[in-house]
Amino acid sequence: MPLTVQKIRSNPAGDYGMRVQRAAGVDLTKDRTIEDHPFVVKLRSHGLIDQEDLKALGRILNRKVTVKKGQDIIVQGYEYKTLDIVESGFGLRFTLLHQGGRQILNAILPGDIVGFPASFFNRSIFSVMAATPMSLHRVSFDAFTELCKQRTNIALALIWFAAREASIYAHHLVDAGRRSPLERVAHFLLETHFRLKTVGCASEDSFELPFSQESIGDALGLSAPHVNRMLSELRHQGLIGTQNHTVNILERAALQILAEFEPSYLERTSFSRNPIR
């Protein structure tokens, strides 16, 4: 059955997503429709798709899978010809190193696409693991390719996704090369909050951050104890507050100045806001 006004069944990933949405002020008494999917919310916020595109997306988002925390979704070096569109939960995209270490390249959040760019290569160049329970809508690469041929707006949206991913990676290179450890952690928090808020999974000044300090360190080139000290320093300066896995941004302007965070690389696009006809 296509995703239209289908109720979500209870599962660990869905329950986790509900907690995040509840924290963001989402009305959970309503049935979820295709318009509520974080992937669609992200696209519509940029005016990239119209109602016919939504109907076409609803027809292919008909296979739902739940992934357990710690489960591999993509394994580096293996063929992967599927796109998993994240409805809820958090993942990590990383590359494995010869001596058993890993470098986390990016956090995967609701509304993101797992299998992009892996499906475009003969073998996956990265691995992806679920950092929390995840709920995914699984689409074959061929089916999505056919959809792009029929719906130009969705094809353009995929190009926009690629440009956005490239800009995120560029900022992460700046993190590793030029930002201090404190600036890296501050930038990571602001970027994650902005990405979650865009798809309705964070409130104005707080968000859920389920990643371990070890994972954050692997993403930022820091040790887990170093991440812990930087978080403590941000709390000491009164810039953030933390409770369990919830981060509260207390002084946004000062935090943005510290991190040199300017979110245009996450929100701006050269596309017209009027959908292509």
Score class of each variant (00 low, 15 high):
4 T>P: 11
5 V>S: 14
5 V>K: 15
7 K>Y: 08
9 R>A: 11
15 D>L: 12
24 A>Q: 05
26 V>N: 08
26 V>R: 13
32 R>C: 14
43 L>I: 06
48 L>G: 03
53 D>K: 05
53 D>Q: 07
54 L>V: 08
57 L>F: 08
58 G>R: 03
62 N>A: 06
63 R>D: 04
64 K>F: 09
64 K>N: 09
65 V>S: 12
65 V>N: 08
68 K>N: 15
68 K>D: 14
70 G>T: 01
73 I>M: 04
75 V>D: 08
82 T>I: 09
86 V>K: 01
87 E>Y: 15
96 L>D: 12
103 Q>A: 13
105 L>E: 11
110 P>V: 00
121 F>R: 14
122 N>D: 07
122 N>R: 09
124 S>R: 11
126 F>N: 10
128 V>E: 01
128 V>R: 01
137 H>Q: 02
139 V>H: 05
142 D>G: 06
142 D>Y: 08
144 F>R: 04
158 L>P: 03
159 I>E: 15
161 F>W: 11
164 R>K: 07
166 A>N: 14
169 Y>D: 10
172 H>P: 11
173 L>W: 10
175 D>P: 03
176 A>W: 13
178 R>Y: 15
184 R>H: 11
185 V>F: 00
188 F>Q: 05
190 L>F: 07
190 L>V: 07
193 H>C: 09
197 K>Q: 15
197 K>H: 15
199 V>T: 06
200 G>E: 00
207 F>D: 02
209 L>N: 06
211 F>C: 01
212 S>E: 09
214 E>C: 06
215 S>E: 08
222 L>P: 02
224 A>S: 00
224 A>M: 00
226 H>C: 04
231 L>H: 02
233 E>L: 10
234 L>N: 05
238 G>A: 07
239 L>K: 04
239 L>R: 03
243 Q>A: 10
244 N>D: 13
244 N>Q: 14
245 H>R: 14
246 T>A: 05
246 T>S: 05
249 I>C: 04
253 A>C: 04
258 L>T: 02
258 L>P: 05
259 A>E: 09
260 E>H: 09
262 E>P: 07
272 S>M: 08
276 I>T: 13
